[in-house]
Design a protein around this nucleic acid. Structure first.
Length: 576
RNA sequence: GCGCCCGUAGCUCAGCUGGAUAGAGUACUUGGCUUCGAACCAAGGGGUCGGGAGUUCGAAUCUCUCCGGGCGUGCCA
């Protein structure tokens, strides 16, 4: 029905209006055909006359008459009304309204505008936490968000690839290896353990599981930790340097072992969270700057040709030419690359893989980095429009209203794994997604754990489980589930069905705006309508003809709830 | 200083690509289970959409300005 009405509207614009071609183009782009929010307004509604009246400087009423009679002549439309400031409300015949629902149930893309649909190859990179320790609850939000976006875009017909960028090169990995080394050989006590090193207990676990042959006498230990700088950062760098030069084989062993260990644990946590990546991209695979043939060298060479200069011994990218606030160093005075240089090469790599769009999901504290990376993309000759950055704000973890303390410095933080073990991956994902990603989220694990009315997650699941329960009862009584609606004139289901129908538009909007929370709110609304409906009808004692339509309605609502939950990576519960 | 985000009911938040009467949950008050799941439902009050100005037939939504809060602004990653 959607495409049918849509083509009538387009036909009206093209053939019946005395507009010039620019006006027609604007009107074709701007008008909307949407499902109404209440059946009092009919089934479908369009703002076409409102937009047209703007363009033509005429009253909407004057434009409406011709459109109304055009639509009214259609067989499947029972009534067309001009309402409010100039909306055209379209009422379908009851038979067609119900058929439309059966059709949508079979084909969940029945309301795709065939003239505008396009399929893209999309890459989405998210989590990408440094492999220096376990994922914490902050990473969970990005994980839930990126994964949901991936599922939604896939549902909309796009080809989606999910990627984790592993920063396995650079200083933070040196610090990881150094921390393990110091623990392994017990170079410091707990009190004197360097501040800049990682102090989490997982470091000790890793240290204990490594076997090393290299001898490490007490005298060496004393030498290693003597005459160190008082500055935390300098101290750790000195330690790294000494270990690297004097114990190179242990160093390499520990570094590789530690890295592998941490990555494995991250993968494990994500698997438990039901987030599966298609690709793990290692920063180290971009190669070294010292190797002229490496990807990173080539990317930098490309940029250096036209958009870089030397100053104070360093190489600067002229990012201001592309809208950045200041120019950025890409090769340091000492010849090492910066974080930006690796990211530059990484983005070149991504864009060369032929994606129409790449989506980067970043923590919102990185928002200052957007302009910079856009500038590098433009400097390499690509369009920054191909990249979209989605920021995810950190989540505040609350326990019944009061903040859960998290101290990263001491290494005692609430890990993602703890959260999943506590309330389960599904409830976690639901709450992570319950608010627009780039805004602060208060996540109360006390509420998420409870089975009270505050717990929106259970409210939604309960709707699904209740329907499953009715269906079961119905089957137990020897009846079979209806495969379509009949023409009983009972209209008690219609409002709920209209809302179920809207799922397609909700999902579309959620995908286009990259905002999964729209689906969460839709789930809340349709669950509420279901619970109301459930309380207002007696299903098993209803008249046979009505019962058919009631049960059919429930089946449809159930399937809508289930498929919406699945887009969020949440498994619908049959009982609870 | 500059840049980005936020300010909607007592509280937590939807609504923001301009449209019909600004919505939920929560809290408070009251009512509904001998039959399908009461983890549910019904009823009630509660708003200068931070202030002001502008654009428009129409602004919570767009523009400007002010106030209040958060974040960012490394030859860190």
């Amino acid at each position: 029905m959607y495409n049918q009405i849509l083509s009538s509207l387009n036909d009206f614009i093209n053939n019946d209006l005395s507009f010039d071609s620019d006006q027609k183009k604007t009107l074709l782009n701007k008008h909307k055909l949407t499902l109404t929010d209440s059946l009092q307004k009919g089934h479908w509604t369009t703002n076409i006359c409102l937009i047209a009246s703007n363009l033509a400087k005429k009253k909407p009423q004057d434009i409406a008459a011709a459109l109304i009679s055009k639509l009214e002549s259609q067989r499947d439309i029972s009534k067309v009304e001009l309402a409010g400031p100039g909306f055209i409300n379209i009422f379908l015949t009851r038979k067609v309204f119900l058929k439309q629902i059966d059709d949508a149930h079979k084909n969940p893309n029945s309301f795709v505008d065939s003239s505008r649909a396009s399929k893209e190859k999309i890459q989405i990179e998210f989590v990408s936490a440094n492999p220096t320790g376990p994922l914490h609850v902050g990473h969970g939000r990005g994980a839930a968000y990126g994964d949901a976006i991936g599922r939604i875009l896939q549902r909309l017909g796009h080809e989606v690839s999910k990627e984790y960028y592993v920063n396995d090169a650079g200083r933070q990995i040196d610090i990881l290896a150094c921390s393990i080394f110091l623990r392994k050989f017990e170079c410091f006590g707990d009190e004197s353990f360097p501040n800049a090193a990682y102090k989490g207990s997982y470091i000790i676990e890793i240290a204990m599981s490594i076997e090393i042959d290299e001898a490490f006498p007490q005298s060496d230990k004393e030498k290693l930790i003597s005459n160190l700088s008082d500055d935390d950062e300098e101290k750790i760098d000195e330690l790294i340097e000494r270990i690297k030069t004097n114990y190179s084989s242990s160093w390499l062993l520990i570094r590789d072992f530690g890295l592998e260990y941490v990555i494995k644990s991250i993968k494990g946590d994500l698997t438990q969270f039901k987030v599966i990546f298609d690709n793990w991209f290692f920063e180290s695979s971009l190669g070294e700057l010292t190797d002229k043939k490496s990807e990173i060298s080539q990317a930098l060479d490309q940029v250096k040709k036209e958009h870089a200069y030397e100053k104070n011994g360093a190489v600067w990218l002229e990012s201001t030419k592309f809208g950045d606030d200041k120019d950025r160093v890409i090769i340091r005075e000492d010849g090492r690359g910066t974080y930006l240089s690796a990211d530059l090469a990484y983005h070149r790599n991504k864009l060369d893989r032929g994606f129409d769009t790449i989506i980067n999901v970043w923590g919102s504290d990185h928002h200052g980095y957007i302009k910079r990376i856009e500038a590098t993309i433009e400097a390499m000759g690509y369009s920054k429009k191909q990249m979209q950055v989605q920021l995810v704000q950190f989540a505040n973890l609350l326990e019944n209203g009061s903040k859960v303390k998290m101290s990263t410095r001491s290494g005692n933080f609430y890990t993602l794994k703890q959260l999943i073990d506590d309330i389960g991956p599904d409830a976690s994902r639901f709450y992570y997604l319950s608010k627009q990603a780039d805004q602060h989220l208060d996540f109360d694990i006390g509420v998420a754990r409870s089975n009270s009315k505050d717990n929106l997650y259970y409210y939604v699941q309960y709707a699904h489980a209740r329907i499953c329960s009715v269906e079961k009862k119905y089957l137990e009584l020897g009846m079979s589930l209806p495969s379509k609606f009949n023409d009983a004139d009972f209209e008690g289901c219609d409002e709920l069905l209209q809302m179920a129908l809207n799922a397609q538009f909700v999902i579309k909007s959620s995908g286009e705006n990259l905002q999964p929370h729209i689906i969460v709110y839709y789930l809340r609304d349709i669950s509420q309508s279901f619970h109301q409906f459930y309380n207002s009808v007696n299903i098993l004692n209803a008249k046979k003809s009505e019962q058919n339509n009631i049960v059919r309605t429930l089946m449809i609502v159930k399937s809508v709830i289930a498929s919406s939950l699945e887009l969020l990576g949440i498994e619908p519960l049959d009982s609870m």
